[in-house]
Simulated assay, not measured.
Amino acid sequence: MAVIWESIKHLYAYLAVVPILPFAIVLFGYGAYIQDRKKAFRLAMDITTAFLIGCVAVLFDSLFSSQFGIYGILLFMLLGGGLLGNAQFRKRGSIDAKKIFRTVWRLSFFTMSILYVVFMCIVIGKLVLTA
Rank of each mutant, 00 (worst) to 15 (best):
G29E: 03
G29T: 00
Y30W: 13
Y30D: 01
G31Y: 00
G31K: 00
G31W: 00
A32Q: 07
Y33N: 06
Y33C: 05
Y33E: 03
Q35I: 03
Q35N: 15
Q35D: 14
D36G: 14
D36C: 11
D36K: 09
R37T: 14
K38T: 15
A40V: 03
A40R: 08
F41E: 11
F41D: 02
R42G: 09
L43E: 13
L43M: 13
A44H: 05
D46E: 09
D46H: 09
D46M: 03
T48A: 02
T49V: 07
A50Q: 02
F51S: 02
F51K: 00
L52R: 02
L52F: 01
I53N: 00
V56P: 08
A57E: 12
V58N: 04
V58K: 11
L59N: 10
L59D: 06
L59F: 10
D61R: 06
S62C: 03
S62M: 14
L63C: 07
F64K: 05
F64W: 13
F64E: 05
S65G: 04
S65H: 09
S66K: 06
S66C: 10
S66D: 05
S66M: 06
S66P: 03
S66G: 09
Q67H: 11
Q67M: 10
F68K: 07
F68V: 05
G69H: 07
I70D: 05
Y71V: 05
G72Q: 02
I73D: 01
I73C: 00
L74I: 15
L79M: 14
L79P: 08
G80Y: 05
G81M: 12
G81P: 02
G82M: 13
L84V: 08
L84Q: 08
L84H: 10
A87D: 08
A87Y: 07
Q88W: 13
Q88V: 01
Q88T: 08
Q88K: 11
F89H: 09
F89D: 14
R92H: 06
G93T: 09
S94Y: 10
I95R: 06
I95G: 13
D96F: 11
D96T: 07
A97I: 15
A97D: 12
A97W: 14
K98C: 01
K98S: 09
K98Y: 09
I100R: 01
R102T: 15
R102M: 04
R102C: 07
V104L: 03
R106E: 12
R106S: 13
L107S: 10
L107Q: 11
S108Y: 02
F109Q: 02
